[in-house]
Structures are given as C-alpha cells and as structure tokens.
Design a protein around this nucleic acid. Structure first.
Lengths: 137, 137
DNA sequence: CTGATCTTTGCAATTGAGTTGCATTACAAA
DNA sequence: TTTGTAATGCAACTCAATTGCAAAGATCAG
C-alpha cells in the first residue's frame, strides 16, 4: 500500500485509481489548483469526475478550498495533521493578479479575532492579492 | 445638492438618477449586497446598468468588493475617508452560511503580514465564515 | 463463481453569474 | 438648437459550477 493510498484511507476515502492519480498530481505540483487545471492534466477523464473528486476530497478534509479574486474556486492539499479547524488551521493565501496563480502560506496564520457577539466562526478565507516574485520584476 | 450627490462627485462619478438611487439604497441597507440584490430591488432597471454602476463605483473607490464563500461577488460602501489601500483600509468580513448574508466589520483590521520575499501585496480579502446572530439561536 | 447491491465514473444537459457589443436615449457643452 | 459624449437598455454570449441518469466497476453474501 502506497503512502497516498494510506492518506486517502485515513480520511475515509475509497482509494480508486482516479483519486490516487489526482492526489498524486496535487502532491507533486505542491500548488493551488482549480478544476480547469485538473481538466488540462487529465484530458482523458471526465470533467464531472474531476469535479466530484475534488468535492469528495473537500468533504473529507483532504483539501481546503480557496476563494481568490479570480472568482474561480481553487483547492490545495491540507497538511498531514490538518483538521481544517478555525482559526488554527486557517492560513493566508496569495493571489497574483498578473499570472493568476494562487499560493499557500501555511506559516502565516490568522489572528484570533474577537468577533461581535453571537457571531460564531467556523472557517476562514484569507487572500492577499498582489504581484508574485515571477511577475514583480 | 444632497449629501449623496456630493459623495458621488467627490469620487468623480457623474451623479445620474440611477446612480443616486443605487447609492441611496446601499447607504440605507448598510449591508453587503450582490448584483442580484440590486436586481430584486430595482426591477424596472436593466441588469447591465446595475452591473456597470457597481463596476463604476468600484473603480472610483466608492465601494469595495468582497469574495465570500458563496462564490457570488458582493459589494459594500466604503467609509467616507477610505482609499481602499492595503493594509490600512482592508478589514474583516463575515459570511453566514445559513442565511448567506455577508457583514462588514470595519473595526477589525488585518495584520501587516511579513510576506515571503518579492511578494508585493496590493489588496486583501478576509472573510470569516460561520453563523450570524440571527441564525445562531 | 454468480447474482445482488452499492459506489464510482461518464455523458449530456442545465443553471446562473458575469460580461460584451451595439443601438438608443439622456445629458452637457458650445 | 445643435452637436458630441456619457449613460442606459436590449440581446446575446461565455464559462464555471452543478445535476440527472445511465453505464461500468467494486464489494459482498450465498
């Protein structure tokens, strides 16, 4: 059993061939991806399958979802011990408006905000927009 | 000349009847709205006009844009002296997954993050998701 | 092994937000 | 009033996201 297979099973996700390939791809690229990115990579697979795979990964806490300024939903692999809980596992992301790439900054956490009364937080989405190193020259 | 007319002119926006009505509506509701919200309110007006009005307001710094977990672009009036600059004028928003409403928390600013080298920030989008007072009962 | 059952995948079609081009109308300057 | 510019309305389109249903594959009991 591979490490990726274990990773899926530890999140109660049936490790099918398709899911293994997608997990492998996300682990290799180490970056934030969109559904379209998967479509470009897996031209033989159906859009719906890729879509539902991401949704399954999301529901089982294997990936987290990022809403950047592009309006396109992005996904990134969670760290091994992540439980996607607020605020500890929520971190900053960076969206480059030039190359439209999104980056994960796991070391940049978020403050434990003191919200107005009766506002109960459960998750967070923190995206800083700007120019990335490749586009800042 | 009304206060709203002045507000438009101070941002170099021609104060047409349509724009006055939309600004008035946004000032009255004091909340975060979407294009669809405007459509519901201004049934006689065209969708495109409302869309372009929001775009004009945005480009002239009269409103700021919020990308919450709903995937629908939201807008909120800026404070009088706001220049939409990062990080000083960027603040936290709250999205209720139950009633799907979004709230502005202008008093909750964002940290001045120390980003990795050559990442140049220009704007930020900080949304906390959870349950609002009306839905937390 | 075989059949029954449940899950996963593929195909087709739809929804809805966002956007654009162009014609028409309203407004402002000369 | 005339003329030019800006704003509005109408129609159509793009594209990400989503759903229903059928086909294929995996799992399990007998």
């Amino acid at each position: 059993m591979t490490i990726h297979e274990k990773r899926l099973q530890s999140r109660d996700i049936q490790p099918t061939a398709m899911r293994m390939r997608i997990l492998l791809f996300m682990a290799e690229t180490k970056s934030v991806i969109s559904l379209s990115d998967l479509e470009e990579k897996f031209t033989h697979a159906d859009r719906t399958t890729l879509y539902r795979t991401l949704k399954t990964f999301l529901e089982h806490g294997l990936v987290h979802q990022i809403n950047d300024a592009s309006g396109i939903t992005k996904y990134a692999l969670c760290s091994e011990n992540c439980t996607c809980s607020y605020p500890d596992d929520v971190h900053v992301h960076f969206y480059c408006f030039s190359c439209e790439q999104t980056f994960c900054f796991p070391h940049l956490g978020i403050p434990n905000y003191d919200l107005p009364e009766n506002f109960t937080p459960s998750n967070g989405n923190f995206v800083i927009t700007g120019s990335c190193p490749s586009c800042s020259s």
